[in-house]
Design a protein around this nucleic acid. Sequence first.
DNA 1: GTAAGTGCAAACCTTTTGCAATCGG
DNA 2: CCGATTGCAAAAGGTTTGCACTTAC
Lengths: 142, 142
Amino acid sequence: MSDNGQTIERALRRRGVRLTRARRAVLDALLQTERHLTAAQVHSLGRQSCPSLSLASVYRTLALLQSLGHVQPVHGDDECQSYAIAPAAHSHQLICSSCGMTYAFSECDLSALVAEMEARTGFRIDAHLLELRGLCPKCRDT
Amino acid sequence: MSDNGQTIERALRRRGVRLTRARRAVLDALLQTERHLTAAQVHSLGRQSCPSLSLASVYRTLALLQSLGHVQPVHGDDECQSYAIAPAAHSHQLICSSCGMTYAFSECDLSALVAEMEARTGFRIDAHLLELRGLCPKCRDT
DNA sequence: GTAAGTGCAAACCTTTTGCAATCGG
DNA sequence: CCGATTGCAAAAGGTTTGCACTTAC
């Protein structure tokens, strides 16, 4: 399993979360594809390593992983029902609009923009959601 | 109706879209509240001005307005089923996490970040999704 | 007048939930 | 061993669709 995988498993263990076959299957599906996947896609992929995996467990596991910050929903105008690995607590995604490949990153200096918007609107801004979209190297060259 | 409303109605007319009572009701609901609303919320608000308004028409109208860029979904970790007015084609939302008030803006200079991510990953980036969250002036002071 | 749009109700899908059986630590 | 977790099946939502009727232009 990838480094991400080991890190996440360690974090889960630390939290006292049981590492069941079903949970590993969900995690592996997301780690192996490096793409954003719907619950149904995770289900069918996950069945390869855990044939008894139920869709209900996929949903329960995705919710668990999301609440612990290891998985993030991918938005975009239509596909808000996909999930991808999020290595860090605050992270954003760079998404290939062709193959769905995702790359997570944490850098995002929006302080100038945030300051300007606070001054203009009187809001106090404390969070943001950022996604970048484009073509990954493979899809770009084809 | 607000300026936004007049501008949007003009744009719709130009496109040859019929301005029916149902469509006006949906538009008015979004324009008047200045908050992001779910389809169900638009429905019950819209019924005040169009008592026969059906939920099906709300969905059809929201899809139409979104496809024309006048309305945008509001994301956030759970509430991807809300919509808010988007005055410009490329616009982002500043959202009050307390009352749901939205403020749309178009400025977003992410060129430095985009350039860095392109260099680091080999992606060609051509779009982004950005949302800022915080407390609006009213909610901040209470 | 005519085609686009509406309301209704049924169909569809995705997601959640209750419960007995199973499994991880 | 014991409680957390699972799979199943049923329930619950939310969204879409077919169709006859209505309305905007």
